[in-house]
């Protein structure tokens, strides 16, 4: 039972750590499926987290925070779209630029507006997205295993967490069961064919990029308003890149993306849990090993040693109508 309880606690923190990854990963999925590489997930998430923290602090409502996060992150997504769709700029360069702009301006503006060393004021109550207790959670708590799992794991997450898991299936449905999804996938593989069918490549890609922006905003909101009580500078700490790694790991598909994010979240949770405790057989494993593991796994996957990750064919290539 002792082991079981520990496991549930680790799984619970796995879920909490995976949610921002999952949201950012799904965000990236839309953009990359439409043929726009986005390494600016990190920056958009960071800017979203700052906007959420700032707006929630000023207006005292988590929903205002969420709205501000989506707006700011959406704006950065539009900048990325403007550079890479309208002006056919290099998408990687544009993503790098957005990461820097977000990293710098969140600190500068945070310091100028709140004077707390780049933090936003500490939040509580209505200005955060707190835990939601699902029906009967208290009642079934004492039921062995099933009840406890329901109480600890499934109930008591924030609304954004449920939204993230809902988005996995929504994304699957949009991508594989709607006309928009079909076109989105097509424009990432062969934009000329989509263009020939009389569908605007530009507008399709802009919509994809906007969805990416909105979801990155939600991911940032989760970081600032659920995982923490406010914005802390550089709070994304590379999560945007782990999300990108998860996206590749999942081969740009929504359901595997969920499992990839849960895996990377689990590694993170395990690293925190195992800090300083020796493992049987191998002894003490350095924390840095777990921190590097998602990146190492992605590199190995990309190299084609465990299955092959093939990106959307038109990814990274600006579309020129006349050729």
């Amino acid at each position: 039972m002792e082991f079981f309880n520990t496991l549930v606690v680790i799984l619970d923190s796995t879920i909490r750590l995976s949610i921002p990854l999952l949201l950012a990963c799904l965000a990236g999925l839309y953009s990359e499926r439409s043929g726009i590489f986005d390494i600016g997930l990190e920056g958009k998430m960071l800017a979203g987290a700052f906007a959420a923290g700032a707006a929630a602090a000023v207006y005292g409502s988590a929903w205002y925070g969420l709205g501000a996060a989506i707006l700011v992150s959406g704006f950065l997504a539009l900048v990325h779209g403007f550079a890479s769709i309208t002006h056919r700029g290099n998408q990687i360069v544009s993503g790098v630029a957005i990461n820097f702009i977000a990293a710098g301006s969140t600190i500068i503006l945070g310091q100028a507006w709140f004077s707390q060393g780049g933090r936003t004021p500490s939040l509580g109550g209505d200005s955060r997205f707190g835990a939601i207790t699902l029906p009967f959670a208290e009642a079934v708590r004492d039921v062995p295993i099933v009840g406890y799992v329901y109480y600890e794991l499934i109930s008591g997450q924030s609304i954004l967490a449920y939204f993230a898991f809902f988005m996995v299936f929504a994304t699957w449905w949009v991508l594989f069961r709607t006309r928009f999804g079909l076109r989105l996938r097509a424009v990432g593989e062969n934009p000329a064919a989509v263009d020939t069918a009389g569908i605007s490549v530009t507008w399709l890609r802009y919509r994809a990029v906007l969805i990416t922006g909105a979801l990155c905003g939600v991911a940032g909101t989760y970081l600032a308003l659920t995982q923490n009580a406010g914005f802390v500078k550089d709070m994304t700490a590379g999560r945007g890149f782990i999300a990108l790694a998860a996206l590749i790991f999942a081969k740009w598909r929504p359901v595997p993306a969920m499992f990839a994010c849960l895996l990377f979240g689990f590694l993170d949770a395990l690293a925190i849990r195992l800090q300083g405790t020796p493992l049987p057989l191998v002894g003490r494993v350095p924390v840095q090993f777990f921190q590097a593991l998602p990146y190492v796994l992605t590199v190995i996957l990309l190299a084609g040693f465990i299955g092959k990750a093939i990106p959307p064919r038109a990814g990274g290539v600006p579309y020129v109508k006349e050729r």
Binding site: A83, H87, V93, S94, V96, A97, F100, G104
Partner: peptide, 12 residues
């Protein structure tokens, strides 16, 4: 970031 954006991604 702005230099990378304007001199790189938006150079045209």
């Amino acid at each position: 970031g702005l230099v990378i954006l304007f001199a790189g991604a938006l150079e045209h």
